[in-house]
């Protein structure tokens, strides 16, 4: 099976039903994407599939064939303007505590900001709605809100 991950093509010999998460983590060694619940309930495993935030723990690799997968490693590597702004805001606001959920938080936040109409600043309610699927057990939500608002402002 051919998978395009972070702009690179990979041939993987796995069960087509295997969730993208495990192809990334166990087969390709990209461990920045985290396993939290295995049931699309917590958002720790969020990746972008053709730019859209998806829960990789519950999306089979077969669905990714012919599409582009982007993970935290690439989205925060600098070339992705929105990803870089989100990461910078996350660092500025010192969002992470244990940090385990933050890959998924950043991937959800980046997809959310990218989907906003150009120049539009999100309302607090829109931020909450967009991020409601990502659990942070450390409770970093106040700083997540501030970081997303900040990142959006910095991109205008």
């Amino acid at each position: 099976m051919q998978l395009v991950v972070n702009g690179r093509e990979h041939t993987v010999d796995v069960d087509p039903a295997m969730p993208i998460l495990w192809a990334l983590r166990d087969t390709l060694g990209l461990t920045g994407t985290k396993f939290g619940c295995g049931a699309a309930l917590c958002g720790a495993c969020t990746v972008h599939l053709d730019g859209e935030a998806v829960r990789s723990c519950s999306t089979p690799v077969s669905e990714a064939v012919g599409k582009k997968i982007a993970t935290i490693e690439a989205v925060t590597a600098g070339a992705d303007r929105v990803g870089a702004a989100v990461q910078a805001a996350w660092i500025k606001h010192d969002v992470a505590q244990c940090g385990y959920c933050q890959s998924g938080q950043i991937m959800s936040a980046t997809a959310f900001i990218k989907a906003l109409p150009r120049g539009k600043q999100p309302t607090p309610e829109e931020i909450d709605t967009a991020m409601a699927g990502n659990i942070c057990r450390c409770g970093t939500y106040a700083r997540i809100r501030a970081a997303i608002a900040d990142a959006s402002r910095s991109l205008v």
Binding site: G29, T71, Q87, A96, G99
Partner: peptide, 21 residues
């Protein structure tokens, strides 16, 4: 003071126990 792991934890580079390979 900013956390020393802020960069690693926002880039997928922070290894946790589950990431041992």
């Amino acid at each position: 003071t900013q956390r020393l792991d802020a960069q690693a934890k926002t880039s997928g580079k922070q290894d946790f126990g589950i990431d041992v390979h």
